[in-house]
Amino acid sequence: MPTVAPLDIDGHVLAVEFLRDTPFFVSAAGAVHRLEGGEKVSEAGQGLLTVIRDPYSDSLVAGGEDGKVQRISASGEVTELAHAPRKWITQLAAGPQEAIAYAYGKSTFVRLADGTTKEFTEERTVEGIAFAPKGLRVAVARYNGVSLHWVGMTAQPTILEWKGAHTGVVFSPDGQFVVTTMQENALHGWKMDVKSGAEARHMRMTGYPAKVKSLSWSAKGKWLASSGAPAAIVWPFQGKDGPMGKAPLELGTRANIMATCVRFHPLEDILAIGFIDGMILAVRISDNKEALLRRPGKGAITSMSWSKSGKLMAFASEAGDCGVVDISA
């Protein structure tokens, strides 16, 4: 049976991520708690709105109500990367070559390693941003679709159109697909192998009873897990056409209790599913075998993260009841 080491933090916890083998818990109030030979706390300003892990370095990037974009290192040190006074920073992405993207209003800004910044403007408000896995290219989600910008070029962006409000965006690990979350209870996807002048092929992923707030790709990119239902909805991407014409898996089904967070294991096709009542299940894709990682708690699971080895899984909740699960026990 997995063992759980609990950690109580005051208020809403936005994110938990492992840096090296240390779990970092970041609260909306700006406190950064790291479990490194005991609990250590540093401050990242007041009123954080979003926190992401930089996949290219051992650091986190945070944005807040004070208009600051900050990097949090593995030692807990906080460094300011950008500042947009009187703006709320709600969208962040981290890319190759130390590039960081942030957005407010109708503009996306890409800050390069040398400190220079490039601005890309849209006709509508930016709702989500993501870097492509190869090349310095950024996807911007907005009303009626996605714009794809090459950071180092002045060329016109590639436009992926689909009517409706797109609230977030991700690339598949191989760069072959772009998928958005939508204001309606759906995902939408495009296949990226289009020839010049041709329209990208669409994938409609619908049928959710609630909005999708959490997405996670499996280690090899064969599966895309999503929240927004009383189970994790997991779409197949192993074929060249992705989920076109295929039904998703439904893992960890629980009557009327909604899944709020999903996170794939870093090495195996095992999915951690966090629910609105604080319970966490792990489900193996190959045989649907379930393991209870945590019993229900005080609040909905807002974030989960695996250590690099996959032996530890940290979780955070909106009520601040957090912890680390040791699944090697």
Rank of each mutant, 00 (worst) to 15 (best):
E184W: 08
P173Q: 06
P243N: 07
A99K: 08
G135E: 10
M313V: 10
V146S: 05
L293H: 05
F25W: 13
I159C: 12
G168T: 09
T79W: 01
D174K: 12
E80F: 08
A101W: 02
K134C: 07
Y143E: 08
Y102F: 14
P96S: 09
M313P: 02
Q97L: 11
A300D: 09
G274N: 07
L49C: 08
P2W: 02
I233E: 11
E318H: 10
D269C: 03
T125E: 06
T90N: 15
I276E: 15
P133V: 02
D241Y: 11
K40C: 12
L49Q: 08
S309A: 13
S305G: 09
A300S: 14
S328A: 14
W235H: 07
H188V: 06
D174Y: 11
K134Q: 14
T22I: 12
A113F: 05
D10R: 10
H149W: 15
V169S: 05
M279V: 12
A28H: 12
A93K: 01
E290G: 07
M182D: 12
L81W: 06
H265D: 06
L215K: 08
A272E: 10
D54V: 11
W217L: 11
I159T: 14
T116F: 10
K289E: 15
E268F: 14
L267E: 07
M203P: 05
L14R: 01
W162H: 15
V325Y: 05
E77I: 00
A255Y: 14
G299F: 04
R204K: 15
E43V: 15
D114Q: 09
V325H: 04
G175T: 02
K298D: 07
